[in-house]
Write a protein that binds this DNA or RNA. Sequence first.
DNA 1: TTTAAATTTATAAGCATTCTAAAAATGTAA
DNA 2: TTACATTTTTAGAATGCTTATAAATTTAAA
Lengths: 145, 145
Amino acid sequence: MIDNIDNLKEILQTINIRLSHQRLKLLEYLVQNKTHPSADEIYLDLQKELPSLSKATVYNTLHLLQEAGLVNALSIEDSESRYEIITESHGHFKCTSCKKLFDFRLNMQEIESTDLADFMIEERDVYFRGLCPDCLKADQEESEK
Amino acid sequence: MIDNIDNLKEILQTINIRLSHQRLKLLEYLVQNKTHPSADEIYLDLQKELPSLSKATVYNTLHLLQEAGLVNALSIEDSESRYEIITESHGHFKCTSCKKLFDFRLNMQEIESTDLADFMIEERDVYFRGLCPDCLKADQEESEK
DNA sequence: TTTAAATTTATAAGCATTCTAAAAATGTAA
DNA sequence: TTACATTTTTAGAATGCTTATAAATTTAAA
C-alpha cells in the first residue's frame, strides 16, 4: 500500500524489480493519479514525459506491478481494464449515466458466506452500478418537467 | 428471476420481447446450464440444435436479455464475459488455479457504505478470487512432499 | 568501461465483440 | 390463410484492446 512517491525506488528494489525509468514513471503516475486510468490513458499521459514510450511497455509494467501486488486491475464491464495503485480496502461504483468511477469505503474482509468455508479467499472486489449524485439529481429535474 | 423453462414464452411476451426460436433456445439454455458460459460456449452448444445460428445472434440476444433484466454478464477479469440467468442474490468466486467459477450465497443488499448515501445503487457484484477446496487441498499435499 | 542479461520499442498478430447489409422469419390485418 | 411491413437472423468484415515477436537499447555488476 503506497501513499507517496518518495520511496518508489526502494519499494521496487525491495520486491526485486529492476529499476527502469519507465517503471518508476508509471508507478509515480499511478500514485499521483487516483483516477482509475485505462492503459491507453496512462500511455497518452506518460508519452508527454517519455516520448519513446511504447504501449507494450505500459502493459508489461502494469502486469509486473500487478504480480508484485502493487497494482490492481479493475474489470467493471468495460471493454478496457482500468488500473489503480493498491491502497486500503474499498469498493467501486460506476455511474451508468456519466460513466465515472467512484471509490467508496468498505471493509471487504467483513463480507462472508458460509458457502466459502473451505475456500481460500485471496482477492475481493465489490462493484456497484447505478447513478451518482449529480446524475441522479439531473434525472429528477428532468422528470419534473 | 427464472427457475424453470415452462413459461419462458410468456416471460418474453410479458416484457415485450418478440418470440423467436433463437431467443427461446438461448433463454432455455441459460436456465438449464448454470455454468456461467461464455458467448462462445453458448454458440457452440446451441449450434448443435440450431445449425444456422450466428454468433451475432448470440450477442444480440444476450444484450437484449440483459436489458430486460433476465440475464447478468460477469466480467471477472477474463478476456471474455460470462453470462447467467438472474436468480437470487449471490456472489462469485473464481479459483485462480483451476479457473472454475463458483456461486456463493450472499445478501448483497446488506453491503453498505456511508460514502454511497447519495447514490442510487442499481446493480451489485461481488467477485472473490483464490483457491477452491480441491485446489487448496492439492496445494497442501504438494507442499508436504 | 565492458559485458551479459533484462527491458523497451515498433509492429504484427490474436481474439472477443460490434457493425453492416442482405436474407429470413415474425406477427398483424385483411 | 395470405399478404405485407417490420423485426430478427445471418455471414463476414471491421473495430479495438491486449499480447507476441524480434531487434535495439538500457541496466547493473564485474
